[in-house]
Amino acid sequence: MSNGSIDTLPEPRGPAAALQRAADVVSLFGAWAAGLCIVGLTLLVLTDILLAFFSKYLSFVPSGTGVGWEYSAYLMGAAFLLGSGMTLRAGLQLRVELIMSSRHALRVRVLEIFSATLGSIVSGSMTIWLLEFTLRTHRYGEVSQESFTPLWIPQAVLTLGAGVLAFQMIARLISAIAGHPLNDPKLGAASAIE
């Protein structure tokens, strides 16, 4: 879990490291997009509260946006996935730590390669399935029953989020095979101990 010694190691070089850096840039962009989604959904919910409050006293104020619940749910889903690549890279995604904290370096590396392989397969498949799903929805012209919003739009954002996770997973797999450090706690928010 603790990667305190990583700071003193030289920066890894080569194609694997370049791929990892590219994945990190994409993941960081994803995380910021996720942050905007969270801020956006907070503002949307607040707007609905304010409208409902003032419409009780001012008849010309509508009682709500009408799309608050629906759109804040879309924003939530987007935030869950878009930030997952950065969270993975920061070493914060939860796992059962008993074996991973083993002192046997080789065993840890083999397990890291296994879990990154499984993660790549799952998140890669998710991305492809979501992409096909989005295209199908677009072709059928399906809209939401609440507000007649084309459903392919929120679905495309989720596809993008799954893609960010898949990219980070694949980069992690290749870094693990190359023997490079996998977690970068510096990425993302400062932790509590500082």
Binding site: G35, A79, A189
Partner: peptide, 12 residues
């Protein structure tokens, strides 16, 4: 970013 990380951990 802290909220993003916690959301992602819980969400997945």
């Amino acid at each position: 970013l802290g909220a993003v990380q916690t959301c992602s951990v819980m969400g997945i």
